[in-house]
Simulated assay, not measured.
Amino acid sequence: MSTAPHSNSWQQLLDMAGPPDPSMALASAGSGGGDLLHTAKPWNDAAGAAHTLRTDTATAKSALTMAHAGLGAGTAGLQSATTLTTVLTSWEDRLTAVHDECGSLEPKLREVARTMGSTDHGVKSSITGYAAPAPADAKDR
């Protein structure tokens, strides 16, 4: 019965390759090696920030629009009123663009968190047998 964790042909190749080069480790794995783990928190935090920004831009646009209500009354012909209306329209367009972009981003960021989590689980499940192979029986099978 073999005590080597690999078949003889694999063990020979590993012996020829020599010890692993520490400089070839993943930076995220740290100096002691270990597992590369995914966490949904940064993705969900980013989605939460997008949601908050979307809400805040809608509130700001509404407040800005209300603050300029009635601007045209009694200011017809004044250049400053025309300029102020142009600036208002520009800001409304910008806030609408940010609002729409954040509305588009939030579900995408949440989907990344879900997808990566299920991918991590699937990969772990698929390699479990390789990481800890079943012990050989008495006939070395």
Score class of each variant (00 low, 15 high):
87 V>R: 06
44 N>C: 05
135 P>T: 03
132 A>K: 05
43 W>D: 12
103 G>N: 01
57 T>W: 08
134 A>Y: 10
60 A>T: 14
29 A>E: 02
30 G>K: 13
81 A>F: 02
85 T>M: 10
113 A>P: 05
141 R>P: 01
10 W>D: 12
116 M>N: 11
18 G>Q: 01
18 G>N: 01
74 G>D: 04
95 L>N: 04
72 G>H: 08
26 L>M: 12
22 P>C: 00
139 K>Q: 14
59 T>L: 13
122 G>C: 03
33 G>E: 10
87 V>F: 06
67 A>R: 02
25 A>C: 05
23 S>L: 00
50 A>H: 06
102 C>W: 08
59 T>Y: 08
22 P>I: 00
4 A>R: 13
100 D>W: 04
9 S>E: 09
112 V>M: 03
114 R>T: 12
94 R>T: 13
140 D>G: 04
16 M>Q: 15
137 D>K: 02
71 L>V: 09
133 P>Y: 06
76 A>I: 08
84 L>A: 15
137 D>Y: 01
116 M>F: 11
74 G>R: 09
60 A>H: 05
37 L>H: 08
51 H>C: 03
83 T>M: 12
29 A>D: 00
110 R>Y: 03
8 N>I: 09
13 L>T: 08
41 K>H: 11
27 A>M: 12
123 V>L: 08
36 L>S: 07
79 Q>S: 14
116 M>S: 05
55 T>H: 10
128 T>V: 04
134 A>C: 02
1 M>S: 13
127 I>K: 02
50 A>R: 11
59 T>W: 07
52 T>L: 14
51 H>K: 14
95 L>D: 10
96 T>Y: 06
23 S>I: 00
35 D>Y: 13
108 K>V: 06
106 E>Q: 15
9 S>D: 11
107 P>T: 09
89 T>I: 04
81 A>C: 03
125 S>V: 03
45 D>H: 06
79 Q>Y: 10
47 A>F: 04
28 S>H: 05
80 S>D: 06
118 S>C: 03
84 L>F: 07
87 V>T: 12
88 L>H: 08
36 L>M: 11
129 G>M: 00
22 P>H: 00
135 P>A: 02
31 S>L: 12
81 A>L: 02
121 H>A: 15
128 T>D: 11
48 G>W: 04
22 P>L: 00
16 M>F: 10
63 A>H: 09
125 S>W: 05
52 T>K: 14
20 P>F: 00
56 D>M: 10
104 S>L: 13
